[in-house]
Simulated assay, not measured.
Amino acid sequence: MKYMYWLLIFIPITLVARFGLQLNDGLVFLFCCFGIVPLAAVLGDSTEQISLYTGPKIGGFLNATMGNVPELLICGFAVQAGMYSLVLASLAGSILGNILLVMGMSIFIGGLKYKFLPFNKNITHNNFTLLGFAAFSIVVPFFFKYSGGGGITEHSLSNFSLALAVIMIVLYLLGLIFSLITHRDIFDDEDEDEDGEKEAPEWSFKKSLSVMIGATVCVAVMSEILVHTVEGAAEQFGLGEAFIGIILIPLLGNVAEHASAIMMAVKGKLNISIEIAVGSSMQIAMFVTPLMVILSALLGNTMEYVYTPMELLGIIISIVIAATVFMDHKVNWLEGAELIAAYIILGGAFLVFGIG
């Protein structure tokens, strides 16, 4: 991913355009997009180096977590600005992008090298079980809001959203304890352990950690600028908020996950790809989204945990299609192409029809 580093020049360009020259929102938003891409790559490289010290399971979790930092910060600033529809659209898009596009590209490219890509069924089962609960949790408030009659008030829905967010975060933390501590042995990849081939880290642990922290700070600055220019950019470029939130912002934030997941699949290490892509979607659904609800409550105006019909449909379809692909415990390039096609169809629908 080092070839993306030259795009770091767009960080000072963005700052000058925003605070020095005070250019229009469209140009600043465009510069900001180009600046976030290499920062995502830097985060990916630093977490990949750290994973060589911590092992594949924790490494995959860390990669997925840091890969979500751009979305987390962008959504955090959007919550602060009261742009709740953009927040939910971006988070829905992150789930779609990781499950369909990132996982699809990994399976497709890895499948061109290997006839079949086997994986640890316990890893996929754990992630998709939590994703299934996440799907259940977003369906419940949606249907109660739209079919609950006059008894559903904004106040009651906000309170329910906050309680639901707390439950989901608790369950997410319990899932981490299960997979990283109490039942860590069932997620070990015996095939990878037997290979005996361990890649040597290029950076020291201290350097990797310092780069990761520095990149996170830069992402925070760029995210705040992006949020404050997104409405003006949408108007200037004629793009709907749904398309920007569901497709554009997640694509920017998923650069690191894309590259890391694909590289692992090419090496035949699909388990790590799954931890990065599917695990990232699970983390968005079970932790990041509920965290945004709690943040909004702390700011005094609780965000309703209710997606639009199209966002809900996209999330449910993506989880079902991806789960179907993994049912036989091995995947091939055609199944990867199917996931990519599903993402293109959904993305095209949001672009053409411009609705969330």
Rank of each mutant, 00 (worst) to 15 (best):
A64D: 02
H125I: 14
I13D: 06
T229K: 02
V320R: 02
I294M: 00
S137Q: 13
V28H: 00
I274Q: 03
S85G: 15
F136P: 11
Y343D: 13
F77V: 10
L312F: 00
S318V: 02
I58Y: 11
A78N: 07
D328S: 15
I177A: 09
D191H: 13
L291D: 00
V325K: 04
G150L: 10
F143N: 10
E194I: 13
P118F: 01
E192S: 12
G232H: 07
D328V: 13
F10A: 06
L15Y: 01
S106I: 09
A233H: 07
I213Y: 06
I109L: 14
L299T: 04
L176C: 11
N159R: 13
I316A: 06
G238N: 01
R184S: 14
I177W: 05
L7S: 09
A81R: 10
G314R: 08
E199W: 03
Y146S: 12
F31N: 06
L96T: 03
L239Q: 05
S90H: 06
K121Q: 12
M292Q: 02
E235L: 12
I345K: 00
N159H: 14
F77Q: 00
E192R: 14
G76W: 04
L23C: 05
G59W: 04
I167S: 12
T54S: 14
I99V: 15
V37H: 02
H228Q: 13
H183F: 10
F353N: 08
A297C: 08
A234D: 04
I345D: 01
Y53P: 07
G253P: 00
G336D: 01
E190P: 05
A261N: 04
T289D: 04
A323R: 05
T129N: 13
S46C: 07
I95P: 05
L313H: 06
P56R: 09
S210Y: 13
V217A: 15
V320P: 00
I244F: 08
G104W: 00
I213K: 04
S281D: 11
L15E: 00
L180S: 07
G356C: 10
K145R: 13
G214W: 13
I244K: 02
I294H: 04
S208G: 12
L117N: 11
A341C: 12
L291Y: 07
G44L: 06
F34M: 08
I107W: 08
A92E: 08
E231H: 12
T153S: 11
S51P: 09
Y114I: 01
L91P: 05
S179E: 12
V219A: 03
L334K: 14
G97Q: 12
D193A: 15
M105G: 04
F160G: 05
L73I: 08
L72N: 01
T65I: 10
L112F: 11
V288S: 01
L346A: 14
I247R: 03
F353P: 07
A349H: 13
V266A: 01
K206N: 11
